[in-house]
Design a protein around this nucleic acid. Structure first.
Lengths: 187, 187
DNA sequence: GGGTATGCGGAGGCGGTCTCCGAGTAGATG
DNA sequence: CATCTACTCGGAGACCGCCTCCGCATACCC
């Protein structure tokens, strides 16, 4: 996608990597709203350089999250072959929630990127949604999950529970995820 | 609560009211993160005056929301006498969600005030939670709602669905509220 | 009308976002 | 190896929002 033609100049690539590493640390410590100036400073790079590589905060976040999204996609594919689609769905939503929880503030970013084609995270969200939809459909085919739930509903609900988790330290969010997923069962 | 002794000076009271009115407009138009300086300007008042009356953004929000919270409380009390506690609970959660949706960004503020005694909105949240807990308990007593749900869970879930609503224009949030509340039924 | 407690307002410090452009340099070319 | 150029760097600076502080104004009491 980003591979136009020529490889990046050595200094550019080095700075790119440094920024990525610094961003990971900063997001982990202070959430997705961490100061971009501080990230540049930590990376030993000028603020201009940060903005050239990552025009928006979301672009930086996308790069940082890329690996996790690929993993999530792989997990969805693997679970799609499960004997118990309902179990598989539950398991995957746990992975999804874990992903949406790695940085404070991430759930909100993901939520707004879900319907915003202008967001750098839109593509990633759509891909994840597709994976979730497949698992959901499989579970619905067995009659275990109510039919009026869409893949988008699933993404939104899991994100919302992840967001709850940001506001209460204990393990409430896992319990609530179970509660909500339980509520999706066909009666 | 605020009535210590002496009534406010006439100019102070006037400015207080103006700020409240301006804040209502600004929050409605730009969400709870509207610029406080702009609110002061719209009220025809200095920024220092705003901060004297409302030391924090949440204090201002609390004043703006006060009437709505009283209404919510009244509604809870009325619904507590309902023939169908389950119906009553559902109805009240609709009111609650409507309340959490009046301003963009409000759901997030309420969510973090729910466990933060330092927040000016903590008291209001606790009172609302108490109302919800009573309705929930009544519904649980009839066996219609699962027993492992707490009043705090209820608040969090409704807030989370309201938050979803902020990120998707259509009527999805109402549908999702129905879905989630449906999931709380005892099986 | 005079005195005082109370309230007013905005300048100013801080820290954040984002742009723009002169200076610096990696790497291709002869 | 020297030269040249296109790419990249860095940070000054414009702008905005938060919040504090204190000299000035004035509402209210007597």
């Amino acid at each position: 996608m980003a591979t136009t033609q020529r490889p990046m100049r050595a200094d550019a690539r080095r700075n790119y990597e440094r920024l990525l590493a610094a961003a990971r640390v900063a997001f982990a410590e202070q959430g997705t709203e961490a100061s971009l100036e501080e990230i540049a400073r930590a990376a030993g790079v000028g603020i201009g350089t940060l903005y050239r590589h990552f025009p928006t905060r979301r672009a930086l976040l996308e790069a940082v999250l890329h690996d996790g999204l690929v993993t999530l996609d792989t997990q969805a594919r693997e679970l799609l072959g499960s004997d118990s689609p309902q179990e598989a769905l539950l398991e995957w939503t746990r992975h999804l929630m874990a992903h949406a929880t790695v940085y404070r503030g991430l759930a909100a970013t993901l939520m707004s990127s879900l319907n915003d084609p202008a967001s750098e995270l839109y593509g990633a969200c759509q891909q994840t949604r597709a994976g979730g939809s497949a698992l959901l459909a499989a579970a619905q085919r067995t009659g275990a999950v109510r039919d009026d739930v869409t893949g988008t509903d699933l993404m939104r609900l899991v994100n919302a529970v992840a967001w709850i988790g940001e506001h209460c330290g204990d393990d409430t969010s896992e319990r609530l995820l179970g509660l909500v997923m339980d509520g999706l069962r066909a009666q």
